[in-house]
Nucleic acid binder design. Sequence first.
DNA 1: TTTAATTATATAACTGGTTATGCAAATTTA
DNA 2: TAAATTTGCATAACCAGTTATATAATTAAA
Lengths: 313, 313
Amino acid sequence: MNFFEQTGKMAIGSRLRLLTGRITDDSAMLYQLYGFDLTPKWFPVFFVLSQNEALSITEIAQQIGHSQPSVTKIIKEMTKAGLVKSNLKSADKRQNLVGLTAKGKLLAASIQVQYQDVAAAIEDLENQATYHLWEAVAEWEFLLDQQSLLSRVKQQRKLRESKDVTIVGYSPKYKKAFKELNEQWITKYFELEQADKDAINHPQSYIINKGGQILVALYKNEPVGVCALIKMDHPKYDFEMAKMAVSPEAQGKRIGYMLGTAIIEVAKKAGATYLYLESNTKLTPAINLYYKLGFEKIPSSPLLISGQISIWN
Amino acid sequence: MNFFEQTGKMAIGSRLRLLTGRITDDSAMLYQLYGFDLTPKWFPVFFVLSQNEALSITEIAQQIGHSQPSVTKIIKEMTKAGLVKSNLKSADKRQNLVGLTAKGKLLAASIQVQYQDVAAAIEDLENQATYHLWEAVAEWEFLLDQQSLLSRVKQQRKLRESKDVTIVGYSPKYKKAFKELNEQWITKYFELEQADKDAINHPQSYIINKGGQILVALYKNEPVGVCALIKMDHPKYDFEMAKMAVSPEAQGKRIGYMLGTAIIEVAKKAGATYLYLESNTKLTPAINLYYKLGFEKIPSSPLLISGQISIWN
DNA sequence: TTTAATTATATAACTGGTTATGCAAATTTA
DNA sequence: TAAATTTGCATAACCAGTTATATAATTAAA
C-alpha cells in the first residue's frame, strides 16, 4: 500500500473505501460458508428486525443510518426471499410496518453461531493490533459530530491565510484603499454623510494629524482591510475606533479580528484606557467581532452600540 | 450510533461504510469550496498522475488499488474535463499511456494549498483522538494480508466446534459406528482385506481383549470418529495406532488431532514409549496429521509411512 | 514460424448505495 | 373545520464502484 504513504492522511476516504470493500467481500463469502441465504447489505436491516417485533421503514432507516429508499429496496428483496412480511397492521395508514417471518426468525436464531465466530475473529484480530479500528471509528464519528470535516478544513484555511496577513501603519499609498474600502461597505448599508466623506477622503488631515492612527491589513501585499483610531475629546474615552472595513473578497481570514487587536494595542501604547465605538446593531457579524474584541454595550442607546474596552486594566 | 453498540464489532463493515460516505461527501464539498473542478473519485488517479509524467491504465489501477475498468472510466471523464491527455506514444500499442495536460499540471500545483489544509485538519483531528484511525486502518490491511477475515472466521469456527467434541472410551454401543466409519474410508481408497474385516466387525475380541484400546469422538453426542491402539508383540513398538476414521461430515473440527493426542495419552499411561503406524502416502491430509502428532517416517519403506512417537521421552 | 497463451484495454451489465420527487395520509394552523 | 404543512413511503434516476467479456496486440511455445 505504498500509494497511501505517498498521499498521506488526506486520502483517508479512499483508504477506508478499499478496506470496507475488502471486509464486505469476505462477509458475503461468510454467509455462503455458513449456508445462510443472506447478503452483507441485508445485515443491518435483518439485525434490527431480529431485535424488534415490528418497525416502520423510516424507523429502520434511522436506526441503521441508511436512507429510507435504501431500506425500502432491501425490505422488498427480503420479502421476496421470505424473510420479512410487510404491511402489518398499523394505526397510521402511511406506515409500512415490517417484521420477520417465521423463516426469518428461525434464521435469526440459527445465525447466532456465525455472529459468534465473526465477533471472535474480529476480537482476536483487534487483540493482535496495537491500534484499534473499532474504537478509532467510533471516535471519528464523535469528533465529526462535534465539527464536520468540512468545517475543520475551513478553520485550517483561515488559520493558514491569516499567516499571510500583515498589519502595517498608514502611509499615503493606502489613501485610495482607505477611501474605497470604507465607501464600499458604508454605501451598502447607509448613506454617506459629510463627516464620513471628509474622513475617508482626507485621512491624513482629518484623522492622523488630529492625533489619531490608521492601520492597514495587507493580504499578499494588497491592502484588503483598514481601521482607524480617532482622537476624542472626552473625559472617559481617549479614542474612538472607527472606519473599520474589510474587502468582501478577503472575508473569512480573520482580518477584522487582527485589525481590531492591533488597533487596541496601538491605543494601549498611546496610553488609552477606554475606547469608544459606534455601530448599528443590524450589522450582526461586526457586532460579534466587537464583543470578541472586548467591547461592551452601553445600555442607554438602543439602536447603536457604543462601547468600552474592558479587556485591559 | 446506538445501533453499532448493539451489533458489536461484527458490523465493522457497515460502520466503516457509513464513515467513508460521510468523509467522501465532505471531500466533494471541499473541492467546491476551493473552486477546483475535481471530484473525490478522481483524486487517486489525479494524484498518481501528478507524481508521474505518464502511466498506463493498468499501472494506475494497480497503484491506487482500483479495478482497471474503474480507471478507464475516470480517465475518460478527466479527459473530457481537459485534465488528462490519453493515448500518448507508447512502444506497446495495446497500452493507453496517459498523463496530465498543462491544465492538469496547473491544477496539481494550485491544489497543494487544499491538500495542506485537509492534511492539517485531519492531523488536528487525530491529535484530539485517543485512538488513531489512520494507523488502525494500516494495521488491519497488514493483518488481513497475512490472513483474510474469511480464514480467521473459519479458524474460530473450528475452535468453537472442537469444544463440542468429547473423546470417550469404547463401549458396545459404538460397535456399529466403529464398523461403518472405518468401512467408509477404507473402501473409498482400497479394498477391504480379511484382517480389516475381522478388526472392524469384532473390535472387542480382536482389539480390546488382546490388550488394545479404542477411543470414540462424539460430536453433539453422536459418534463421528474412532481410533484404535492395537497391542504389538515387537521389541521396540508397544502398540500400533490404527483404524483412525473421521466422518466426512465432521471434517474440519480437528477431531483427528483430538483423537490422536488422546490415544497417545492412553498409550503413555499404558507404559508405551514407541508407537507404530502404517499409512499410504497418498493420504496426504492424514500424513500431515501424523507428523503433527509427532510421528516420524521410517526411511526403509517407500510406499508406507510407519513411525514412532518421538514427542515424548 | 505458426499457434497458443497472455496482456492491456474498452465496454456492458450489475451492485449497493444515494438524492429527487410525487402521492397519500396525518397533523398543525388559521 | 378547511387549508397548509409535514410525514411516510415508493419510484425513478443517478453514482461510484464492481465483475464478466470481447478484441487487439504482444509474448511464449510447439
